[in-house]
């Protein structure tokens, strides 16, 4: 029973983890509660659905195109909406409201284009695979692997390359970074494309596992954001582990009480932990 619980946490936590990492990555250059990140998850899922259902492209091609589209969408939104607003002195709340407006537009557009019915991406990825003592659908296994790989690669990029140094410099102080000769816009572009790519991937995997509907973006993003914030910023371990922590807290609630108390238990656990570690559960205290 415990083993089974741990596997569930692994599966769910990996799913949240991808979104948490993407959110953290984006926050390093554009920190605010960006609701359009949720839209991008939906784009990944619906892009794949649309290209396979209506354009009859092969699945692999559809996935690649969708994810590429997501990367571009994230970069374009950042470049033409949020960065200009920020430069004009907009506060985080204004950015939140602007992203809310855009999220509403995107959700309504998806609804108009694809209808409101709940769908699922079909195909081989949805089928079970046997791993000895238990079996799980291939897509869930892929999600876990993808989460670890993405974590590894992004961590490498952000903390062990020169590019990563530039990103962190920008995060510390955009003005200073600019003065010292960094091309802010280029960095922001690349980082937002990376974030969009991960979100698109998350959307595709979710599409195979738990399906798609026009309202899917918001809730998924919310989970990822919570995982990232609770885990703590400053290193990528925060979002990565925070996502698993979120999954664990949720499942503990279901296991010990009932599904109805899931959210309450999860949040009470967070708050208790945060009281003792207000810098984020998986971060060291600031020097």
């Amino acid at each position: 029973m415990l083993l089974v619980l741990l596997i569930n946490i692994l599966i769910v936590g990996a799913g949240y983890g991808l979104i948490a990492i993407a959110f953290a990555v984006m926050s390093s250059v554009s920190p605010f509660f960006n609701l359009t990140l949720g839209s991008i998850i939906a784009f990944g899922a619906y892009g794949t659905y649309g290209l396979t259902e209506y354009a009859h492209l092969p699945m692999a091609v559809a996935i690649v195109i969708s994810i590429a589209f997501c990367a571009c969408a994230a970069a374009l939104l950042e470049r033409f909406v949020y960065t200009p607003l920020r430069t004009r002195g907009a506060s985080s709340m204004v950015l939140l409201v602007a992203s809310l407006g855009l999220y509403t537009i995107f959700e309504a557009s998806i609804h108009l284009a694809f209808g409101p019915q709940y769908q699922i991406l079909g195909g081989a990825l949805g089928q079970n695979m046997n791993l000895g003592i238990f079996s799980m659908p291939k897509v869930q296994f892929i999600t876990i692997v993808a989460d670890f790989i993405v974590f590894g690669l992004v961590n490498l990029l952000l903390f062990h390359t020169f590019f990563g140094k530039m990103v962190r410099a920008l995060n510390d102080s955009a003005k200073l970074a600019n003065i010292t000769g960094l091309n802010n816009n280029k960095i922001i572009l690349i980082v937002s494309m990376l974030s969009g790519l991960i979100l698109g991937l998350s959307g595709v995997l979710t599409g195979f596992d738990t399906g798609l509907e026009p309202t899917m973006g918001f809730n998924l993003l919310f989970k990822g954001m919570i995982g990232a914030i609770i885990g703590g910023s400053g290193s990528l371990y925060g979002p990565f582990l925070g996502a698993f922590f979120l999954a664990a807290a949720e499942n503990v609630g279901v296991m010990l009480w009932a599904s109805e108390w899931r959210d309450l238990v999860a949040f009470v656990i967070f708050i208790i932990f945060l009281i003792f570690r207000p810098q984020g559960i998986f971060q060291r205290k600031e020097k």
């Binding site: 619980l5 569930n8 599966i11 769910v12 738990t210 809730n219 949720e250 499942n251 279901v254 296991m255 009932a258 599904s259 109805e260 899931r262 959210d263």
Partner: peptide, 12 residues
């Protein structure tokens, strides 16, 4: 069992 409307994971 009653699940919240945004739950997508019923495994546990």
């Amino acid at each position: 069992e009653k699940h919240n409307l945004d739950v997508r994971d019923f495994r546990t």
